[in-house]
Design a protein around this nucleic acid. Sequence first.
DNA 1: AAGTGGTCTAGACCACAAC
DNA 2: TTGTGGTCTAGACCACTTC
Lengths: 252, 252
Amino acid sequence: MINKHSSLPLYTQVERYLTTEIKNGGYHSGDLIPSERELSEKFQISRMTVRQAINNLVNKGILYRERGKGTFVAAPKIGYQLKGIVSFSEDMRRRGLEPSTKVVSFKTISNPPEHILNKLACQDEKKVIQLERIRFANEEPVAIETAYLSYKLFANLSEEDTGGSIYDFVRKELKLEIHRAEQQIEAAIVGEKDGFLLDISPGSPVLIVNRTTYLSNGVPFETVKTVFRADRYHFSIEMKNEQEDDHVFSRD
Amino acid sequence: MINKHSSLPLYTQVERYLTTEIKNGGYHSGDLIPSERELSEKFQISRMTVRQAINNLVNKGILYRERGKGTFVAAPKIGYQLKGIVSFSEDMRRRGLEPSTKVVSFKTISNPPEHILNKLACQDEKKVIQLERIRFANEEPVAIETAYLSYKLFANLSEEDTGGSIYDFVRKELKLEIHRAEQQIEAAIVGEKDGFLLDISPGSPVLIVNRTTYLSNGVPFETVKTVFRADRYHFSIEMKNEQEDDHVFSRD
DNA sequence: AAGTGGTCTAGACCACAAC
DNA sequence: TTGTGGTCTAGACCACTTC
């Protein structure tokens, strides 16, 4: 079950062993799993390696520890969970819908509004790419999206690329890693133009998501405003309780 | 700068050393920080301990690594960031507003709707506590909140406790740890009753947040529906790119 | 070739929980 | 007292990047 000559790290193999046991019913919610020392002896690997595996599963919310007692299986998560940052297309597919896209406009803008430059941290260049798209699910319009992309990074983005996922372009063409996104979500009444494009009547509610997305070096590469039909879209997220820095002091 | 006899773990001290250096301008965005081996020698601690400190800062988005190159300072985060799960009161205070609360009703319900029991995972008991509150910021109504609490856990919750934060009760009275929350966010037009309580006109948009919150053992303790005035509230979150399990296979 | 982060070992002592 | 997770050590070899 653990292969020391695999290219897969040992701790990843231990993670898979544990998650498989949980899935297949070997361990249930609230169960105590074998101690770190037991597992390290069972697999003939060091305790630190077992800890690395367990740490990862604790961070994922699959296990939890109690000091002095042991490590336990957490209750399974319920419902649809949005893991990480996904593109519109992937989001729709996970909901069982078929996504499609219509590009409304695609152009380079030389003097965009200050707040766009601020969000993209490119005040030096004063040049961004603007991309407007209508997003469909099962042929029905669901959202109007206006994206501003850093010109530095996307100078080679072609019109053909705009029909698909910008995130795929970042990962596959630019070979960069997407790390985090800051989002602001608000509710509003649809404007006249958006209402027409979304095929909803005046006075209908919409969900507006403003997202700025960052690479792992902390550089923002896109800031996007998306207007969703409220009757066709809700936003699902999972939040973790990242605790603040603790206020402990030295006693020496 | 590092105290081996402190009660504070060494890796926490290294974390603080690095974040302080970054804050005070010792290192800037994109800068290469000293290598793990350099730091371990400088502080006369082992490399694994330095790694634990750096891992934590990488997870927080403060540093990032590049294999073969080194560890770098990430660009600072912009804007208001909601760290972790906060109560309404704390959320408002962070926005510079003074929160207050009016309890509309507080009662035990014996046969609540099935979906409430499912979310609280207490089908066995068929008994929950219902708490309806109006939430104010600077004396103005901002949200209508309907919370369902697990009876098992909150049997001792008194009417006086309901004016404040349920999360404080969980942490201080129950001495339990809040771990994660699943949330669904949607937009809608305000209903008649809520519109009256929120003092907004018919047809106004509202942001509806449905939240279920879990302890670290995976047990849900509350499920809450909150209706916010769209003109007074937007929801801010940060998402991280938790990557899926990689599809690597053994070559042996 | 030299330096970096990624993985791993075989121990150690500590604080805490349960008995 | 025994067993648990929490912290820490002093090494090791690997894959990768840069020169």
